[in-house]
């Protein structure tokens, strides 16, 4: 029972997805393209994860019957969020999903690294597991390569499985030019400012996608000249001091850590020399 009119562009602003994205606490999510959701192949297996799967899917795609009972509707809402989250985890590791999340990253929608020496490096969301209901979402810093908890409890309660364990690492694999430098100011590619304007405006989605494709092909696979073998040597670190003197045990640990670092750098540089 498909109601054609609800899916049309005129009603776009009141679609379930745009409502979901604009609700408070859902700032980390990006918009999953409708055709990605409508391609059942992409949803393989999710019917086992979500109760009332087909109705939840209808709700997400705004095809749900209006005459559905209210109590079912509220429980469906929970299922629809779960379903959207799980689809989202799959979507953001596709080429188009990555580029949508990249826009959000450039706007620092996921916050900035709390580590002082990361100089406000923008973060990326990541899960500790791909299984829902296990761990809340964490934030990955590409500079110190570590995980932090979201500042706000609104974000701290989002399921990490809605972002998955792979996403931030795939992003830097696909866009090696965006791997943050280990020192110096934060730089986010050429069009960091330009990305800000393109908010969720449904009517222009198609055109924007095409533009993104161009941008993706420009950045993707680039970075042949990038060499990160000795990047860690530039990383700044905090050295505790008491009246100006290093703290013995911590200094010892830090020397050991730096020796581990130097050993890796030696390994990677040797590798670099061997490959033409």
């Amino acid at each position: 029972m498909e109601d054609i009119s609800t899916g049309s562009d005129s009603d776009y602003s009141s679609s379930w997805i745009s409502w979901f994205l604009s609700s408070k606490g859902n700032e980390y999510f990006c918009e999953v393209d409708e055709d990605f959701i409508l391609d059942r192949f992409n949803l393989t297996g999710l019917n086992n994860e979500v109760a009332n799967y087909s109705q939840a899917l209808d709700l997400i795609t705004d095809n749900l019957d209006d005459d559905i009972q209210d109590e079912l509707r509220s429980s469906l809402d929970v299922q629809a969020r779960l379903l959207y989250g799980l689809i989202h985890a799959r979507w953001i590791v596709t080429a188009r999903g990555l580029s949508k999340m990249l826009e959000k990253y450039k706007r620092a929608d996921f916050g900035r690294c709390p580590r002082v020496l990361c100089l406000q490096q923008p973060l990326l969301p990541v899960g500790l597991t791909d299984i829902p209901y296990e761990k809340s979402v964490k934030l990955y810093c590409g500079r110190c390569e570590d995980l932090y908890s979201p500042k706000s409890s609104r974000h701290g309660s989002i399921d990490g499985a809605y972002f998955g364990t792979t996403f931030p690492h795939l992003l830097f694999l696909v866009y090696p030019t965006l791997i943050p430098p280990k020192s110096g100011p934060v730089e986010l590619g050429r069009d960091a400012a330009g990305a800000g304007g393109a908010a969720a405006d449904g009517g222009r989605t198609r055109r924007r996608l095409r533009e993104e494709q161009v941008e993706v092909s420009a950045a993707e696979g680039g970075g042949e000249g990038i060499n990160t073998a000795s990047a860690a040597l530039k990383a700044d670190r905090y050295k505790p001091r008491i009246y100006g003197f290093q703290v013995n045990e911590i200094a010892k640990l830090q020397r050991w850590q730096e020796a581990v670092r130097d050993r890796q750098v030696g390994r990677l540089e040797a590798l670099e020399d061997r490959t033409p």
Binding site: E145, A235, V260, Q264, R267
Partner: peptide, 25 residues
Amino acid sequence: YVPRIYGFKVSERAKSGPRMHWLRL
């Protein structure tokens, strides 16, 4: 933390591979 892609550790041989593990080790 050990970064993983589809369950596999990201190799240090990758340009985007781990470089800062030592900092917390």
